[in-house]
Amino acid sequence: MPESKINAGLLSFDALVDGPPDGDLVILLHGFPESSRQWAAHVVALAEAGFRAVAFDQRGYSPGARPAAVTAYRMPHLVQDVLDVADALGADRFHLVGHDWGGSVAWCTAFANPKRVVTLTSFSTPHPRAFADAVREGAQPVPGYHRTFAPEGAEAMLRDNLAWIRGSLGSAVPADHAREYLGRLSRPEALRAALSWFAAKDPADVAIGAVEVPSLLLWSDGDPVVRRHTAELTAKWVTGPYQFVALEGIGHWISEEAPEPTAQLMTEHIRRYG
């Protein structure tokens, strides 16, 4: 698959790029601890459908986009990266796909930029306010690692041979993908940067309103973090066309555990409203 570098703003992002240069742009945002490789099958599917698919290694994951300050990883900066990448590719409007942390960035980008984001597809991640509602109701626990991950914890995680990450990926993620993720994060500076997303998290940054762009949420019943009720609450935070799909027997890593059905659902959604 063609690999590229995208110079956007003051940063340089490594990316997987495929599809016709004049095709409508689809930007795909990965989660933790993954990289753009998590979207390999989806980039191919989109390219075959005639779209210009771009999955980039986000801030902290690309060596050329790795600022040192934790505050540089707050949500407004992550959203601006998406816009800068689109600008660098000459796209005024684009489709947006995200998973996990990338899903949070996608929701916030779509809310703030409804004239630029044509459609939104979120894998696993509900609207941030739906998650907050569920937590407030006592229906959704906050994952412990969201409170304990911090850049200064990178050294301890490295000493344990990335056991937490290795265990969380398990056998659900293709072995070659897992090797890449672990290899990248085995470098202290890369792991510190990835963990900075958690340390920089500010509830005010994700206190967004209802999203008006056509949205699709793909949730899986084997997800150990997001409960079904939380995912279903997303419906109250989307005013545009909305579809919720619950996938059975699949865990958190749904783009890699079920690449074909999720690629089909994503592509159909983009075509329907593109």
Rank of each mutant, 00 (worst) to 15 (best):
L25N: 10
I27A: 00
L28M: 15
L28D: 05
L28V: 07
L29S: 04
F32I: 04
F32W: 15
P33E: 09
E34W: 01
E34L: 14
S36P: 01
S36L: 12
S36E: 12
R37F: 09
R37K: 10
Q38D: 06
Q38V: 14
W39V: 11
A40F: 01
H42F: 04
V43P: 05
V43L: 10
A45V: 02
L46V: 00
A47T: 01
A47Q: 04
E48G: 08
E48N: 12
A49Q: 06
F51Y: 15
A53D: 03
A53S: 03
V54Q: 08
V54H: 04
F56Q: 02
D57H: 08
Q58M: 13
G60E: 03
Y61S: 10
S62K: 07
S62D: 04
S62E: 02
S62Q: 01
P63N: 08
G64I: 10
A65F: 14
P67M: 04
P67H: 02
A68L: 12
V70N: 02
V70T: 14
Y73P: 01
R74Y: 03
M75H: 07
L78Y: 03
V79T: 06
V79A: 07
V79D: 01
D81M: 06
V82I: 12
V82S: 10
V85A: 00
D87S: 15
D87Q: 12
D87N: 13
A91T: 09
D92K: 14
D92F: 02
F94W: 13
F94K: 08
H95R: 02
H95Q: 12
V97F: 06
H99E: 05
H99G: 08
D100F: 11
W101K: 09
W101I: 10
G102V: 01
S104W: 00
S104P: 01
S104T: 15
S104N: 11
V105E: 05
V105R: 07
V105S: 05
W107R: 06
T109L: 11
T109E: 10
A110I: 08
A112E: 03
K115T: 13
V117I: 11
V118I: 13
T119M: 13
T119C: 09
S122E: 02
F123A: 14
S124V: 14
P126W: 03
H127I: 11
P128E: 09
P128A: 11
R129W: 04
F131Q: 12
A134K: 01
A134M: 04
A134R: 04
V135L: 09
V135S: 08
V135W: 06
A139S: 13
A139T: 09
Q140D: 09
P141G: 09
P143K: 10
P143S: 05
P143I: 04
G144I: 08
G144R: 13
Y145I: 02
Y145S: 01
H146C: 07
F149L: 10
F149T: 02
E152W: 05
G153L: 10
G153E: 05
G153D: 02
A154H: 03
E155A: 15
A156I: 00
A156C: 00
